[in-house]
């Protein structure tokens, strides 16, 4: 497992650096190297999660280490899909660092498998964690695209185009990524919450709520829910939506860190 871990981390590091260089120098070769590194890293990352699951006998979503490793994997998955779909070459510079930091963080925390012997109702637990992680990863993507939107909007409003004006894509595309990612991410985390409740219910045999988890859930759900319905009902879009996803993601991450410790 360590072997997979090291290779994955190394590939993501190379990919991230090359994306930064691509952003600065715009040489096509750098982008190709970066994307190939990330793809190779992703394959090893998948291998890492599989071997981990085989060793522990459960999916990679029980310990903190597994949380971070799985979250990182989901971000890269979502990024690769967005890259194929939108072909925005500078997206990597804004999204891959989140995946890299998450995985690098996992590197420094205990890798011991869970010893709490949490009673597992495997089906609902798997559904709950998988949907939540992919949902959060979609929201991480909106964080990257949201930052890009805010920068590009500022360039256009200021009327003095700088380096980013030339590098970043159109506002329309960035807003579209945000919209689609929230359209997918919000229902996913909603389903994740529901399946989480079902899991706890089945595990304990009665309906109960963990106060810390519930607060985290309410925060996340209300931020993205407001945006999700704000888009539909009030036609929110553009900068307002971009600010929402950027600040929203920061709040969720902070709340999540508080929840763990």
């Amino acid at each position: 497992m360590k072997f997979f871990f090291t290779i994955t981390l190394f590939c993501y590091f190379i990919g991230m650096i090359k994306y930064f260089f691509y952003l600065a120098l715009r040489k096509a070769l750098l982008f190709i190297i970066a994307t190939v590194s990330i793809t190779i890293g992703f394959v090893f990352h998948t291998g890492l999660l599989i071997t981990r699951s085989m060793e522990t006998g459960h999916g990679p979503y029980i310990t903190t280490f597994e949380y971070y490793a799985f979250f990182s994997w989901a971000i890269v998955l979502v990024y690769l899909i967005a890259e194929i779909r939108y072909k925005i070459k500078d997206l990597g510079s804004f999204v891959i660092p989140i995946a890299f930091i998450s995985l690098a963080y996992a590197f420094f925390i205990s890798r011991y498998p869970s010893t709490t012997g949490e009673p597992m109702v495997q089906f609902w637990l798997t559904i709950h964690r998988t949907l939540s992680f992919i949902g959060y990863a979609a929201l991480a993507l909106t964080f990257g695209a949201g930052i890009m939107y805010i920068i590009q909007e500022k360039q256009l409003k200021s009327k003095h185009p700088g380096a980013f004006y030339y590098r970043l894509p159109s506002l329309e595309i960035l807003d579209d990524i945000n919209k689609k990612a929230v359209d997918i991410g919000f229902p996913l985390i909603t389903c994740g919450f529901i399946s989480g409740i079902i899991w706890v219910w089945q595990r304990d045999g009665y309906f109960s709520l963990d106060i810390k988890r519930t607060i985290l859930m309410i925060i996340t759900w209300s931020i993205y829910g407001t945006l999700f319905f704000g888009r539909i009902i009030a036609g929110w879009r553009g900068k307002r939506a971009a600010r929402f996803v950027v600040y929203g993601f920061i709040i969720v991450i902070v709340a999540y860190m508080v929840h763990i410790y």
Binding site: Q152, L156, Y165, Y166, P169, S170, L171, E172, I173, D176
Partner: peptide
Amino acid sequence: RIAENAVSISYVAVELAKKIFGE
């Protein structure tokens, strides 16, 4: 990208429109 960005006023208008609207 030597020929990529517009250097006349009317083409700059198109370029800006594309940066805002995409297509």
